[in-house]
C-alpha cells in the first residue's frame, strides 16, 4: 500500500475509482477531456456500445471522452483501487492526441474498452501495484481506426496476483499498436498476461514486447497471439517474450503464437527464458560491487528499457518503485 500511495502522490489523480464506483465528479475537465457516467451515456444514446467491441448495454462505470482534434495537455490520471468491479470506456476522437495514466491497486476488477478513432494517437501508461494477498484482474479491449495509433506501456510490480488480458483489433488501414510490458512475480506471486492483436485489414503495424521476471516460487505466464486475417496483406507484426528466472523454483510459461491467413506479411515471434549471468555478476564484483548490487544492476538493466518508456518524472518514480520490488525479489535468489 505504501508503494501505491507513493505513486498516487505523483500521479495527482484526476479520476478516482474506488470500490467499483467513480469518486470524482463527472464533467468537463480543465484540459477539455470529458469524464462522464458510462451508464448514463449509454442510456441517453450519447455512446453507442457498438463503438466499443464487447461493451455491454448495461455497463456501469466511467466514460473518458477525448474530443476530436484534442491536443495533449499533460496526462490524465485514473486510479482504480479497492475491491469491486468497474468498466472504463475511452473514446479518443478523430485526430486527437492524449496520454492516460492508470494505477491499479487493491482487488480491482476492471474492464477497459477503448476506441481510437481515425488519425488519433493514444498513449496508455499503466502501473499495477496491488499488495500481497490482493488480486487484480483487468481485461482491455481496443479497436483502432485507420491511421490511428495506440501505444501501451504496462508495468506490473504488485506483490499479489495479477491477471491481465489485452485484445486489440486493428480495423482501419495504416493503424498501429505498440505494447511494451513487464511483470514481476516474486515469491508466492502469480502473474499472467495475455496479449492478442488482430490485424483485420491490410497495411497495419503491431509490435508487442513483454518481459517477465520470476523469483522464489513465483509464477508468470505470457500468452501471446498475433492474428492476421486473410485480406490483411502487408501486415507488419512482431511479438517478443523475454523472461528472466531467479532461483530454481521460479517458473515462467510463455507461448507466443501466430495465426496468419494472409500471404504477403512480415511477422515474427520469439521467446527466451534465461537466468542471471553469473559471469556478469563476477565481473561486476571484481570491480567492487557486492553480489546483491551486481544482481540488482543486472535485473534493473533487464527491466529498465520498459520503465523508461514512461515519460519524465513518472519514469523516475516508477523506477524507484521497481527498485524496491527488485530488492524484495533478490531475497529469494538461491
Amino acid at each position: 500500500m505504501e508503494r501505491a500511495s507513493l505513486l498516487n502522490d505523483m500521479f495527482g489523480t484526476v479520476v478516482r475509482i474506488c470500490g467499483g464506483e467513480c469518486r470524482s465528479p463527472f464533467g468537463i475537465m480543465p484540459s477539455g477531456i470529458r469524464v462522464l457516467s458510462l451508464g448514463e451515456a449509454i442510456r441517453s444514446g450519447a455512446v453507442l456500445v457498438e463503438a466499443f467491441g464487447g461493451l455491454c448495454a448495461d455497463a456501469e462505470g466511467v466514460l473518458i471522452d477525448i474530443p476530436a482534434g484534442y491536443r495533449a495537455e499533460g496526462t490524465v490520471c485514473i486510479t482504480v483501487e479497492g475491491d469491486g468491479g468497474c468498466d472504463v470506456a475511452i473514446s479518443a476522437g478523430d485526430g486527437s492526441d492524449a496520454e492516460l495514466v492508470f494505477l491499479f491497486d487493491g482487488n480491482a476488477t476492471c474492464g477497459r474498452f477503448v476506441s481510437v478513432c481515425h488519425g488519433a494517437s493514444l498513449r496508455v501508461r499503466e502501473v499495477f501495484a496491488s499488495a500481497a494477498g490482493e488480486s487484480v484482474a483487468v481485461s482491455c479491449r481496443a479497436r483502432i481506426d485507420g491511421e490511428a495509433f495506440m501505444d501501451t506501456v504496462t508495468v506490473e510490480l504488485g506483490d499479489g496476483t495479477a491477471k491481465l488480458s489485452y485484445a486489440t483489433a486493428l480495423e482501419g488501414a495504416m493503424s498501429k499498436t505498440v505494447h511494451s510490458g513487464l511483470f514481476m512475480a516474486g515469491d508466492g506471486e502469480r502473474k499472467s498476461v495475455a496479449v492478442r492483436v488482430e490485424h483485420r485489414v491490410p497495411d497495419c503495424h503491431s509490435d508487442v514486447t513483454m518481459k517477465g521476471v520470476a523469483a522464489g516460487d513465483g509464477f508468470g505466464a505470457f500468452d501471446g497471439m498475433l492474428y492476421v486475417a486473410r485480406d490483411a496483406q502487408h501486415t507488419e507484426a512482431y511479438q517478443q517474450s523475454r523472461n528472466l528466472i531467479m532461483g530454481g523454483k521460479a517458473r515462467i510459461l510463455t507461448s507466443p503464437q501466430l495465426e496468419i491467413y494472409a500471404d504477403d506479411v512480415k511477422c515474427s515471434h520469439g521467446a527466451t527464458v534465461g537466468q542471471m549471468n553469473d559471469d556478469a555478476v563476477y565481473y561486476m564484483r571484481q570491480r567492487g560491487l557486492s553480489e546483491a548490487e551486481a544482481r540488482g544492476l543486472q535485473l534493473a538493466g533487464f527491466v529498465n528499457d520498459i520503465i523508461m518508456r514512461f515519460e519524465g518524472g513518472l519514469a523516475q518514480r516508477v523506477l524507484e518503485a521497481a527498485e524496491k520490488k527488485i530488492d524484495a525479489m533478490q531475497r529469494f535468489v538461491e
Binding site: A280, Q298, G301
Partner: peptide, 14 residues
Amino acid sequence: VEIPGVSMANFMKL
C-alpha cells in the same frame, strides 16, 4: 563480459 541493459555510467558510479 557483455552486460546488456547495464550502463557503463551506472556500473562505474557504483
